[in-house]
Design a protein around this nucleic acid. Sequence first.
DNA 1: CGATAATTCCGTCAATTTAACGGAAACAAT
DNA 2: ATTGTTTCCGTTAAATTGACGGAATTATCG
Lengths: 142, 142
Amino acid sequence: MLDATDEKLLRLLTANSREATSSLARKLGLSRSTVQERINRLIDRKVIAGFTVKTHEEYEGKLITAHVLVSIDQKYAQQAIGLMKTHSHIKTMYVVSGAYDLIAIVKAPKMEEIDQTLDFILGINGVNKTNTSLVLSAKKES
Amino acid sequence: MLDATDEKLLRLLTANSREATSSLARKLGLSRSTVQERINRLIDRKVIAGFTVKTHEEYEGKLITAHVLVSIDQKYAQQAIGLMKTHSHIKTMYVVSGAYDLIAIVKAPKMEEIDQTLDFILGINGVNKTNTSLVLSAKKES
DNA sequence: CGATAATTCCGTCAATTTAACGGAAACAAT
DNA sequence: ATTGTTTCCGTTAAATTGACGGAATTATCG
């Protein structure tokens, strides 16, 4: 579907969508018109939906984020997921396979609330283990 | 902080960050150079963090996603992060505190490529342990 | 295999856009 | 009124773009 050049182009545009087509072309070792066509193709093929701004969200930026891996007894899984869904600081949840069963992305303005959310998760019936990683910084954002 | 013009400009750029400065200027009723300055000011004032690509969820949706927790020797950390940044299937990276040091979000269309990416990560100097969770489904998305 | 179609690529030209100035208004703060 | 700051503008040479037609490469199929 996407060849290596498309992916590199996509990465460059993701890093800076305002970079001039000519500049992209130089970095990709292609002619400017080719890059132009590739971008148009990516748009036509619905790979690229558009170009936008990344804002330093005063709000989002100030939130503390934690990735919480959760291990749950299979028979309590649905119930636990249902409960966690309702918690306001649990922003995203992924059902996964691996050493854990669920990844919960927790965001809150204060560490105290992150703590309380972790306590909430640990208190849920069927949850037997968690592993929390506090996000210090994002090195690459898509 | 932001005047009405800045907000309108921000809205235009959010809709299409690749729009030419001249075109923005016409829509805003300002000279091109003024708009250029305003954009630079927005960047300097940390309102705009960057310009990026919006991808279609249909495309994103077809990708297999894995959350990879990575444990790295502190002294190799920067080097490892630099290397991982360049890998096309590593879409996002968080520096974290906890049992691991880094979380890499890996996305690829085929399981094989996920595998290869994990091998790539494990092969990096200083990486001593990883823990991979394959995303089966998202139960809640922010 | 060979012919044909489709895709990807490139160079080119005229028109537009950009970066980088210096200086004019507008606005505050004394 | 004066000084300083911010926002704005016009101007230039240099860079970039859009829009071609056609070459080179890859697929497709009879």
